[in-house]
Design a protein around this nucleic acid. Sequence first.
DNA 1: GACCTGCTGCGGGCTG
Length: 753
Amino acid sequence: MKRFPPFHDRYPKEIVDCIDSKGWQTFTGIQEAAITTLPTNPGTALPDAILEAETSSGKTEAVFLPLLAWLSGKRRDDAKGFSLLYISPLRALINDQVGRIGPLAQTIGLDVHRWHSGVGKTEKDRARRQRKGILLTTPESIEGFFLRIAHENPEIEAISKVSAVVIDELHAFFDTARGRHLQSLLHRLDLLAGRKIPRLGLSATLSDIDKVAREVLRPKSDVPIEFLRPQKNARKIKIGLKVFIAPDKEDASTKGKKSSPLPLNDQFAKELMKDFRRDARGLVFCNSRGGVDLLQERASTISESSGLTFEAHHSSIPNSKKELIERKMRNEVPDPPKQMVVICTNTLELGIDIGQVQRVVQIDPTFSVAALRQRVGRSGRRGDQGAEGMIYVGERELTADAHPLDQLRIKTFQAIATTQLSLEGSFEEPNHADLHLSTLYHQVISVLREGRPKTTQQLHQLLVLGGPWHAAPELKDEAFFARFLETMTEMRLSLVERVSDDEWRLSTSEEIPRPAYAVFSTPPEYTVYFNGQPIGHLPMTISYRVGDTFVLANGRWRVLNVSDHNRSLTVAKAASAGAPRYGGAAQTPSGLVAARMRAIYRGEKSYTMERDETAAQMVKDGRKAFKKFGLDKNRFLDHGRDVVLFPWCGSRRAQTLVLLLRREGMKASIENFAIAIEAASANDVKTLLAEIKRQPLPEADELAREARQLQADRFDRYLIPYHQRLAYGRRFLARDGVKELVEELLTADAAAA
DNA sequence: GACCTGCTGCGGGCTG
């Protein structure tokens, strides 16, 4: 490899030799940045750091080369203790990384141990015995180590000895219950170690990283954080747009009619054949599992004997099948397909190794800018190849009574807005207001499970004042926190009890259920069997009867037998079938995207992306409809007996507006990028809004009374209603700027009149 | 009209 003096001159010979033998031409930008910046002399303390670069830009080596060089100079004694802790949000990523980190670590005599639920006993026993080297694991397994503390668990002790923690795919922990969980675990590890263990996060460029990642990596940090990013120019990204028109009704009566277009999935499948005709490997992202199954079925049928293979990859496909697909993509099977396209959900959004992909197609727009950027970024990664993405949008054939949202061609504008923002590098801001009370509940129990009773003050200091909940204003108040603990003793399932006035311990009076390791939960699933073999999973929240049909995992099936007790569905092949139903809630629009869509409708933002003729026509039509409805001036639209209101804001303010209207007796709900109000006129709504404007805004927890579903996270059901409403308000509502929004809605309309 | 992620413990069957 080309000589890179900061590496070849400063790094230990064993490590240099190992890298030279890999046949790499040069280091990537992020690797050069890390090698130049991070200390290799154990006399210099390791900093907290964030390495920011795209998936598969060699971030793993970028962080491990300096860490291993640093460790090689450190005197090692015989005492048990791991050297490094690597944390990944995915088991699959750990399995990939063993192969990359293992040989590097071997050069300085360190073993690498995997530890997650898919790792066998033999391998875990080896890690348990050695308690040295590098441990690769998940947040939930770390929770497991903590939960076993009470039973004299030497592993957690050995983990607390590490010189640094590496967190892979740090962006996957932004703004989530799981992220807060990880912060708590790392904080508890620091306390156990009696020092601040350096944290190094690997992140994609998906937000204002300096601000966001700092808070995620180490809340309330008083030590500086190094930000490392490539010096070299970012590679080129191209995103194109194609729009397809769906027939008005996709049923038998329209089939064969000349004037009627083909069903959407047939059009998509044909286009995929064209777009991927020259590529060896491709990825297609859908917004739902059902969408993946249907499109894969159509594409497989249409492409038969063309040499192009289509595979389905989502969470309901068995792991063994998914792993086989990933191996085929990497050409690790005998006689791999020459041309292969995987149709997936966000299962392949994070950095699981799937080799080199030439092109990415997104079916219908994503709801966040970050998702689009991350997905397109999975293409053309080696060398200087730019990323190439294409969005296929399905719009509906317009009828005389078409809904305004269809006339506005909303999906086309959503696709353009997400593309523009993605290319500009503007991403959604995480919601820092989130209280994460469900996760707090989990961590109180986890801390108490360690054994000794704790006082209110101790718990408050550990989790709130000095810990990951430091930024929640309500919780800072010790009385509020004490009340939270007290409610935990009052619930039907009370896992906590008072020892004395001010001391708490894990309940002893009841049978304590098995500990929960994850802060999220998954609904129970049927396993679908064909000929005794599991072919996939379906959620039990949807009921099935004998004779029902569905498409799943590259086949059409008919239900032969349903067993709720065994959680199994037995199926036979069927001649035809529709998409499986998975259930779920509507997707929520982001304010960033909404505001940009409005600008494009108004012609304030041109769009320069590559598009087909239909897309160009859709933009013309959408803008024309926007004018026709007068939406350039006002925000209300009477549609039949209902009103459609266009706030052009993010989902939190929109949801606040919806609850305000419901509180006054209106049947309001969010519908795509608009608010639909049933059985009301624009004038009714305006009168109400004027009234709302005059009154003081209710508190968020008060408004939350109007919400249909208060429970969102795993342990919300164990919280008292007041805490549930508080958590709901902080997560889904925003009072800031709502008065201004109401004002804007009324003035815009007055100006128009 | 949504997507994804994780854990243990136990028992049965197979291999050496």
